[in-house]
């Protein structure tokens, strides 16, 4: 057996990483095509405030992150659909607001700097067995909901107005997508970290989009890119003693550049 599998944390990291790698592009494809990529980044910053709360109150930071992102995601969607604030402005307000809150909370409670570093940049060392179970159960729920509402999500993403006219509950579908994004962001924190989550949600999809395939094939290619990046990133970071999150994201970027160059050649 490879030396790597003798470490419990590596096995847990691979399990959690695999689940995250499967969900991230499934959410990502809808966000990218709706020009919503930044929502993942915003919710990641919100989750940081949630984590800070969790560390202060001595609760599981993944759970406090989950609660804060879900509540914020619904508020962002409300603010955006009210049309009183532009969509990007709503995101900017939540992004900077939650970062400010997180920094204030961190300055109130000194002494969890090491922990916080792990949450910011991802470290599979922080993945506990209970986290793996939680990621597994919630990940299964996210996938089940995405499958159940797949055709409606595709339609609303392609043309929201026509979808509405044909009787699809577009408001509900929009809210569902943003809540699922919040869940995915919270679950991905231990593996890639707050600052790099949006990269994992966005880059594999953008890379797959360069290949110009059907919707289903684009999903399959982004899955392959995502799973390969996460698994190989965990191995590489273990052997070379690098940051896991950073390594994973750099691998996705290399793949993106390759697909981008391939597209330039064929165009």
């Amino acid at each position: 057996m490879l030396e790597i599998f003798q470490y419990g944390f590596i096995v847990r990291g691979l399990e959690a990483g695999f689940i995250i790698a499967v969900i991230a592009p499934l959410i990502g494809i809808f966000l990218v095509l709706r020009r919503y990529s930044l929502i993942a980044d915003t919710l990641a910053h919100v989750s940081l405030a949630g984590i800070a709360f969790g560390l202060i109150l001595k609760l599981n930071p993944m759970i406090t992150a989950l609660v804060s992102t879900v509540i914020s995601s619904i508020s962002i969607e409300k603010l955006r659909s009210s049309k009183k604030v532009y969509g990007e402005s709503a995101l900017a307000i939540f992004l900077s607001g939650s970062l400010a809150l997180a920094i204030v909370l961190i300055s109130i409670a000194h002494g969890f700097r090491v922990d916080l570093f792990n949450y910011l940049f991802g470290s599979i060392v922080t993945v506990k067995q209970s986290d793996v179970y939680m990621i597994g159960v919630l990940g299964a729920i996210v996938i089940a909901l995405l499958i159940a509402f797949y055709k409606e999500l595709v339609y609303v993403t392609f043309d929201e107005e026509s979808a509405k006219v044909s009787g699809i509950p577009t408001k509900f579908i929009n809210t569902l997508l943003i809540i699922l994004t919040a869940l995915t962001v919270s679950l991905a924190i231990p593996v890639v970290g707050v600052l790099l989550i949006s990269a994992l949600i966005v880059i594999p999809v953008v890379a797959a989009l360069q290949l110009k395939k059907s919707f289903k094939q684009t999903i399959i290619y982004s899955e392959i890119i995502s799973i390969f990046s996460v698994i190989s990133g965990i191995f590489v970071s273990f052997y070379l003693n690098l940051s896991t999150g950073g390594t994973i994201v750099l691998i996705t970027l290399v793949i993106f550049f390759l697909t981008f160059l391939m597209k330039q050649k064929t165009d």
Binding site: L33, K151, E152, V154, Y155, F158, D159, S162, A163, S166, G167, I168, A208, L209, K212, K213, S214, F215, K216, Q217, T218
Partner: peptide, 14 residues
């Protein structure tokens, strides 16, 4: 990223 048939399938979703 969508094929002709995938677009027309949407017509049946409602």
């Amino acid at each position: 990223p969508i094929t002709v048939k995938e677009v027309v399938n949407m017509g049946r979703i409602g």
